[in-house]
Design a protein around this nucleic acid. Structure first.
Lengths: 233, 233
DNA sequence: GTCTATACATCGATAGAC
DNA sequence: GTCTATCGATGTATAGAC
């Protein structure tokens, strides 16, 4: 399970009585939406509370009543994305190849929400600096994702569907790097790359039978939607 | 040839008389060094002229005597990196595989100059925003690099050393994405990845005989150093 | 060519009225 | 819960003395 920056805050928030929470919660959500936009467009350091407050139709003081500081607001934005992700991600599928196909689906999905891509793309680069308020968050996040995708490749290797010359963990690092790097190019020029196609081409070269249709593993027969892995970056 | 943002300025600078240029040129170089550091650590928007001036032991006004604005300083920093790169890069080698090996060497070299990696990593994400002063620079830069690496892969494909299923241009996009993404992870955690090894593993999977020693193509017999491709990102 | 002084904008955050 | 008012810090850039 991913450790977040504000487990304490989140717990306290959830413990609040429902009626009071519902009303003020709507405002909170609106603020978080606006904050995500602003941080995505300008990054954390260059993004201003003023801009967030303006977009949500509030004064800065009113905004700071809900979030006591700018960095607390950032943490809340990231925590909420994690909540969404946690509800959608399932990396512990027995079939590692299915997890990889999920990543391609994710890349497709991501192209429809450029704001979120911008957020993670900008923030992860910014948070490279050790004194950035989200530095620890991103270090832990990447660690977790590396482990998850590494596990998928381990199962693929164990089933003999990948060259034994390849280290599953290193291929996981490569996969994540590829997804991140594609996003930079895509944000700079939407026509420069089809992120999902590039990712699929990559998997096809490393994994035997990546394109094979799976009629056997029909665990999704309940008609539910494919799980979409969100906010990986 | 790469088009830069300040061809005009560069031309004007070069035209200056040598004696005058030498003295003030030293100060310029010192400023550019400091500016690269600051922009690398904090990005363009959060990096301050104050910090640059302090590191170079000057007042802000003195600094602005050499560069009329903050964005002009950034352009000068990028232009200088391009000058260095242009002197080191040779992507028009007849042997495409040799160019790829050059990229691995570059990845090794880059690990020794984290400041430059930080600069491009932070700036390229920041410049994703259309109103960023370096936006056009990075769009053009990536276009150029895609074309260059795409050409190398085309020659490799033409010589039959790559699967004909792969589109050389798309593999070029993938290669660049991989290099960029590796840098993010590496900056967040230096132990998370060996950038050069990951890149080599990638090429090995796509290119036949990537590891083969080339005794035939001994064009480097003059004892000169391997050309190092600098500042690709 | 470099400095001091300063103008002017923007920002995060607090205090206190309502 | 939201506002106005305000503080203090920080930032870019200019004017003018030396």
């Amino acid at each position: 399970m991913v450790r977040t920056m504000t487990d304490t805050n989140t717990a306290a928030r959830v413990r609040k009585p429902r009626g009071e929470y519902a009303k003020t919660g709507a405002k909170r959500e609106a603020i978080l939406d606006a904050a995500l936009e602003v941080f995505a467009e300008s990054g954390y350091r260059a993004g201003s509370l003023r801009e967030v407050a303006q977009r949500v139709g509030m004064s800065e003081a009113g905004l700071l009543h809900h979030f006591r500081s700018k960095s607390a607001l950032l943490q809340a934005v990231l925590d909420r994305r994690d909540d969404l992700s946690r509800a959608l991600v399932d990396f512990d599928l027995p079939d590692g190849v299915a997890s990889l196909r999920g990543l391609v689906t994710l890349a497709e999905h991501n192209a429809s929400i450029p704001g979120v891509i911008e957020l993670y793309c900008t923030l992860s680069a910014e948070a490279t600096s050790p004194d950035h308020p989200a530095h620890a968050y991103f270090v832990q996040r990447y660690e977790f994702v590396r482990t998850s995708i590494g596990g998928a490749f381990e199962r693929i290797a164990a089933s003999g569907r990948m060259s034994s010359d390849l280290d599953p963990h290193r291929v996981a690092v490569t996969t994540i790097a590829l997804m991140d790097g594609l996003q930079v190019q895509w944000l700079l020029d939407r026509d420069s790359t089809d992120m999902a196609a590039a990712l699929a081409e990559f998997f096809r070269a490393f994994v035997d039978g990546f394109d094979d249709v799976d009629e056997a593993g029909d665990t999704d027969a309940d008609g539910g939607e494919e799980p979409i892995l969100g906010g990986l970056s």
